[in-house]
Simulated scan of single mutants.
Amino acid sequence: MKALRWHGARDLRLDELQTSAPKHGEVEVQVAYCGICGSDLHEYLDGPHSIPTHEAHPISGCRAPLTLGHEFSGVVSALGDGVEGFEIGDRVAVEPIYRCGHCLYCRNGQYNLCISMGFIGLMGDGGFAERAQVPAYMLHHLPDAVSLRQAVVLEPAAVALHALRQSSLKPGDSCAVFGLGPIGLLLIMLAHLRGIERITAVDIAPERLRLAHEFGACQVLDARNLDVAQHLQRDGGIDCAFEAAGSQATLDAALHSLRKGGEAVLVGLMGEARFDAFHLVNNELRLISSVGYRGVYAELIELLASGKLDLDRVVTRCVLLEQAVSAGFDALLGDKAQIKVLVNPTPALAEA
C-alpha cells in the first residue's frame, strides 16, 4: 500500500509498504480522509518534535520513519484477534490517543494524561495511508447521518471541546479566542453552540476573521493594527481567553485582556514563554492548560448526527494522497485562506 512517511524535516516520502494482518486487539481501517494538523506542519517544517527517532514509543513500538496523520476516518477492513463490537464494513472515526490502560491517570479516566500518552500518526503509523492499523479502543462507530468527511474533523473539534470543558466559561460570560486556525475557529463554533454569546475573535488574517464572524463571533479584531488588550479593557476586560496560536504575542494579549479574576486557557503549542507574575497575582488571574481530549467524541458525534454541528464548514480543500505535500502541506504554509485540508488516500471512499 501507499503511505506518506516522515523521514526528516522537509522530507515526506510516498512510500510503498508491505501490509500485514492486524495484531491482537487491533483493527485495520481503510482510510477515507485524513486531515493535516498544525502538529503535522511543525514536524514537516522543522521536526522532529514529537516523533520518536531513537527509542521506539512504549505503546506503539514505532520510531521514525513513520506514517503521519492522526485526524482520520474510514471503513473497517480487517479485525485482529480479540476485537469485539466491530465488523468489516463498519464506518468509524479514530480517536488517536495511545493509552496504557493501567497507570493512575488511565484508571481515573484521564487517559489524555497517561504516562505513556502519544498520538497515532506522530508516535506511531497513522492515517496518511491507504490503510492503517489502530487499537480497537480508538474507534467510534459513525451513525448513518454522519459523513466520513465530517468525521475526520472530529479530532480537532475534540481538542476545542475539551478546552471548553477545562475552562470555567458559562452562558452569560464573555470570551476571546486568540488565533483562528482550525482549533480557534472550532472553539468559536462550539462556544456559540454552548450558549456563549459574547465571543471575540482575534487574528491577523482577514479571511479567518470573516469565518470567525460566520461561526458565531460577535466581534472580530485584526491584531495587525490594534492594541487588542487595550481595546477589550475599555469594557472592563473579558472573563475567559483561549490562546490558540502558540506565540508570545498572543499569550501577552490574552492575559492582559482579562478582567480581574479572569481565566486564560492555553491550547496552542509553543515552547518557553514569559509572563508577568505580578500582573497575574495582583489581578488574581487563573492560567490553565488543555491537552488533547478525553470523553468528548460521543457528544460531538451526537451533535453531528442531530444536525446541530456542521464540521464540514472548516474544510477548505481535499486532495489525493499523491498531492498531499504540494497541494496540502505547502498550501497550508503559504495560503492563510486554507483552514482544514483533507487528504483522500482511497478515492473509492470519497464523498461528494
Rank of each mutant, 00 (worst) to 15 (best):
V92I: 12
R198L: 06
V94R: 13
E197I: 02
F119T: 02
R274Q: 15
A136T: 11
F86C: 11
C240I: 15
P206D: 11
E207C: 14
A132G: 00
V296A: 00
F178K: 01
G328P: 02
E87L: 09
L221M: 05
D90C: 08
E322D: 15
F275Q: 05
G89V: 12
A331D: 01
R63K: 15
L161V: 06
I59Q: 12
P135V: 10
R91H: 09
C114K: 14
M270T: 12
L349C: 01
S73L: 10
Q110T: 11
P65W: 03
P96I: 09
L258K: 06
E299Y: 09
F329G: 02
A212C: 04
N344F: 03
A64P: 05
L169K: 13
R149W: 05
S167V: 01
C218F: 06
L342T: 14
D203C: 11
N282C: 04
I183R: 09
G121A: 08
V281N: 10
E284C: 12
D330C: 14
A21N: 03
R224H: 01
I301F: 04
R63W: 06
T250N: 03
G216I: 06
G80K: 02
Y44R: 06
E322F: 11
Y98L: 14
Q323A: 10
S257G: 10
G181K: 03
V92E: 01
F275P: 05
